[in-house]
């Protein structure tokens, strides 16, 4: 249950970051939704990553980014990074 909430919180965080940094409404995006299908080009995706890095105070390494295609991939990367740095996650 905690994991599900965690995922929902992260989805909300991504949606909030997209709204604030890109003025984009990700609406009904689910973990399975490809980022490109939301209209995010490569620069938009990096902008979203920057906004998430700032909010979570983490640095998302290129090795993660290269594997990110869906909203779920992005959330998974954020969850991994938070798990490895619990002292700075919020």
């Amino acid at each position: 249950m905690a994991d599900v909430l965690r995922e929902q919180e992260l989805i909300e965080l991504v949606k909030n970051a997209a709204e604030e940094a890109l003025d984009m409404d990700l609406g009904d995006a689910t973990p399975q939704t490809p980022l490109r299908s939301l209209g995010l080009d490569s620069l938009d995706q990096l902008e979203l990553v920057s906004a998430l890095e700032e909010r979570l105070e983490v640095c998302i390494p290129d090795s993660y980014l290269n594997r990110v295609e869906t909203v779920g991939d992005l959330i998974g990367a954020l969850a991994d990074l938070q798990a490895s740095r619990p002292d700075v996650s919020r």
Binding site: A21, L43, L46, E47, S50, A51, E53, E54, V58, C59
Partner: peptide, 13 residues
């Protein structure tokens, strides 16, 4: 204030 994490992707552009 925040270091490199404070710089968004649109800094260069």
């Amino acid at each position: 204030a925040k270091g490199p994490v404070g710089l968004p992707a649109h800094t260069v552009t």
